[in-house]
Amino acid sequence: MDDNKKKQWTENTIFLVVILGCGLGVDNTYYLQIMTFIGINTLLALGLNMLMGYAGQVSLGHAAFYGIGAYTTAILSGTYGISPWAALVCAVSCAVFIAFVVGLPTLKLSGYYLGMGTLGFGMIVNILFREWSTVTGGSSGFVGIPMLEAGPVSFMSGRNYFFLVWMVVLVAVLLCRRILSSRMGRALRSIHDGENASLAVGVNTHFLKLQIFMFSAALGAVAGFLYAHFVMFISPESFGFMVSVKMVTMVVIGGMASVWGALLGASLLTLLPEVLHGFAEYEMIIFGLILMVVMIFMPQGLTRGLLDIYEHSRKRDKRHGN
């Protein structure tokens, strides 16, 4: 156990150093902004990973919480002029409350039914963003979201925003690990391995799933908040079905049930379109192929898959040595 703690400690320190290194070392605003997007996506993937990887519950509508976070802060701070930080509190509580109400009946489902239930929820929320145009700006989008400020610090510059986002990611990572190493984390994993068995040993699985659902909704809302104030414009398309699919893809490609997998998945899916820009017309084909190939050959995700290949080759080397 101590060993494990030490390992986690070093990992976190390395993570912090890398963030600081990137933030201070990279000068080009473009790269900083790409990394900011990676940070926002990592938050999304982290939240969904807790739900999918640890609690074993699929959600195909998670972009809804991302959108609820973004729209709540946009409306409160943009239309009503409330401080964005107060809006953040509202955004998160709003997302958590909705997650509670929706999760209560939805999480009783499982398998494809759960997938379809969350998908339906995501679609309905998206249609609301589009149709409630007097409040949300409709499909043309919401204009006029203010910049974030904290006292004398303005987050106008790319670097400040980068640090803001990544500090939030760091906190989220620590929080996730804290939850996972607690009693709740162990109970969660037991659900993943077998819900009936964990029920039998006295785990209140439904309540637990609900809690994690609410937690991941909160992370999604925070990500939405950060996205809204970064781009200062939001429209329903940014929170549609394809975004939900993309979030699931991040988790699955990075590797489920791994905090760093979420980071890897988010980075890959954010960078891939940038790299594929050169292929223009063929981008969709390549993206689809990558998705299929990774899933076919490394269903545990890239983190696990690459580790497997590495271990496999080491084993083979050893055998050759003998």
Binding site: L289, M295, Q300
Partner: peptide
């Protein structure tokens, strides 16, 4: 060819295929 035909894996494969087919 999928290594582990778990539903979630298969779902993602079919999602990938749908993007691929649309691209084609």
């Amino acid at each position: 060819t999928a290594r582990t035909p778990q539903p979630i894996v298969l779902v993602i494969i079919t999602v990938g295929a749908s993007i691929f087919l649309r691209g084609v």
